[in-house]
Design a binder for these strands. Sequence first.
DNA 1: CCTTAAACCTACAGTGATTGTAGAGATTAG
DNA 2: CTAATCTCTACAATCACTGTAGGTTTAAGG
Lengths: 145, 145
Amino acid sequence: MSEFVTIGRAAARAGCKVQTVRYYEQIGILPEAVRTEGNQRLYSESHLQRLVFVRHAREMGFSLGAIRDLLSLADDPDHSCEAADAIACEQLEQVNRRITHLRALKQELERMVEQCRGGVIADCRVIEVLGDHSKCADRTHGARA
Amino acid sequence: MSEFVTIGRAAARAGCKVQTVRYYEQIGILPEAVRTEGNQRLYSESHLQRLVFVRHAREMGFSLGAIRDLLSLADDPDHSCEAADAIACEQLEQVNRRITHLRALKQELERMVEQCRGGVIADCRVIEVLGDHSKCADRTHGARA
DNA sequence: CCTTAAACCTACAGTGATTGTAGAGATTAG
DNA sequence: CTAATCTCTACAATCACTGTAGGTTTAAGG
């Protein structure tokens, strides 16, 4: 009852493009797939699981490098959880940094857009603010992101 | 009092690498710079302003395409402000979308990390959650493996 | 004036993570 | 059997830089 599927179905199930799956194989993130007589790739359930893992991790923002590490950890079930935890923590911190950064941007953009209501370019806050750092909200303040 | 500066100083003032400045010239974001007898680029104050504008906009997350548009708008001071406003609004929306996305990630990562305290890979929530969509936040108010 | 170090020049390759293309062959439904 | 769809390889393109090699120019010190 080996339920092998073609690359198209595998990609569909993982929510990515066919090329992406081939790319993962190419860079060694996925092992080489079995082939049909006609040289087409076939994916087993465990292949699919690995692919889903990768896609899910990508959606969570993990880099392929981090995913590679996670996979090699996952392949050793007796290993301590510590390293996987560390990778996830690092990812979480990165996400927090990005959120902080984006919130600052959001404020600045809101200010820009708010002050630019009609008028001509010569008086445009958007252009003006972008051209002059000193017109930024409070850039010399938080200092960290 | 033509205060021309070399590319190194220009880059330093804009907070980017020398190569980046040359790259901007190459793709037409910045006009070609004047050269010394020895073929080295020199930047005037207006050049510098444009470069600072570009870098600031990049820091705000605008794509080079959007920046190109903003620049051509900025070059026409009598033009209506509308288009610049629209670009900034689109950017603001993008930032909002990203923040929303990142907040969801943050939650999921926090859950993963929280539940993975010590133990071995075989029981690791990080690995487990990444390998199984059904264990994601929105469905797992009571689920366990 | 000469030397040395730093900064600059061009041209091109590499990054990350895909995505797109061309031109062929395989598979499946009608 | 045929037509449509899918898959194959191999390679180029994307975005916004960044790095490298190998050479030239410039500023400073002796």
